[in-house]
């Protein structure tokens, strides 16, 4: 059993929380997410050109890079998190270039050394899997793929092929932190995914409130919240951990009791 499998084997749906590494006191912020009840952590790797992200996460990327965050820093944050929280799965999320800069094997090795459980790379679709996927699987790190409203039935098998850990369903065709998808479209999409895979399905993009998260958790195995948390980091700085824990607790309550 991997940590990711454990997280999705609990008797309730999982809350997946995203923040950007190096934006604010990341260790304290991550601890607050865990204290609030996050089941899985997504740690964003900052990139100069986050083209799939909306304004909130774009700003977080720039704040982090502006503070001088390096790839080594991100890996160190992950390593220290793993030391403090041996049972909470940690997923790195980001863009291809910082991941493949020193070669996919280097990245997979380093991520393994830092105790990373999975990797979500926004701009490596299955067609370019060779660029990173084999190196991750070799190290036992789950390559977590994204499925979207534009992923049609014909294409879905190729997305699921080689995907591990969970499937991240991007509920809106758009960028992070913007509008939320209609509940019935999420239900249909999750059903379509479940018909083709045994992997857990986590739904994200545009999920901001406990009400939204609870509604999605009725049908999905996990709910991803990112921009709403990242905005707190941006707004509250040193005071962010308390605010993060507050929101995470409310989200966790809604997600964990949805069914």
């Amino acid at each position: 059993m991997t940590l990711l499998t454990n997280a999705f084997s609990k008797p309730h749906p999982a809350l997946v929380c995203f923040i950007t590494a190096g934006d604010g006191d990341t260790a304290a912020n991550l601890d607050a997410l865990v204290a609030g009840g996050a089941d899985v952590i997504e740690l964003g790797m900052p990139f100069t050109d986050p083209m799939a992200d909306g304004p909130a996460i774009q700003s977080a990327n720039l704040r982090s890079l502006g503070a001088g965050t390096t790839t080594a820093d991100v890996l160190q944050i992950a390593y220290e998190f793993r030391e403090r929280h041996p049972d909470v799965p940690l997923v790195l999320m980001g863009y291809a270039n910082p991941m493949v800069r020193r070669g996919p094997e280097w990245f997979a090795n380093s991520a393994k050394g830092a105790g990373v459980d999975g990797v979500i790379c926004v701009d490596i679709p299955p067609e370019e899997d060779e660029a990173l996927g084999p190196a991750l699987r070799e190290q036992g790190i789950a390559p977590i793929r994204l499925a979207t409203p534009t992923t049609d039935a014909a294409r879905l098998p190729s997305v699921l092929q080689g995907s591990q850990g969970f499937v991240y369903y991007v509920s809106v065709a758009g960028i992070t932190g913007k509008q939320q998808a209609a509940q019935d479209s999420i239900e249909q999409a999750v059903a379509a995914l479940k018909a083709q895979t045994d992997l857990p399905i986590a739904v994200g993009f545009g999920v901001r409130t406990p009400e939204q998260a609870g509604a999605i958790a009725k049908v999905a195995d996990g709910v991803v919240v990112g921009s709403a948390l990242v905005e707190i980091v941006g707004e509250y700085g040193a005071e962010a951990p308390a605010k993060l824990q507050e929101l995470t607790s409310a989200l966790a309550e809604a997600v964990h009791t949805a069914r």
């Binding site: 926004v122 370019e128 994204l146 534009t150 294409r155 997305v159 991007v170």
Partner: peptide
Amino acid sequence: GGRYVAETLMPLIL
């Protein structure tokens, strides 16, 4: 070269 895009765009690129 290649097609390093988000999944949302991939079907459109094809």
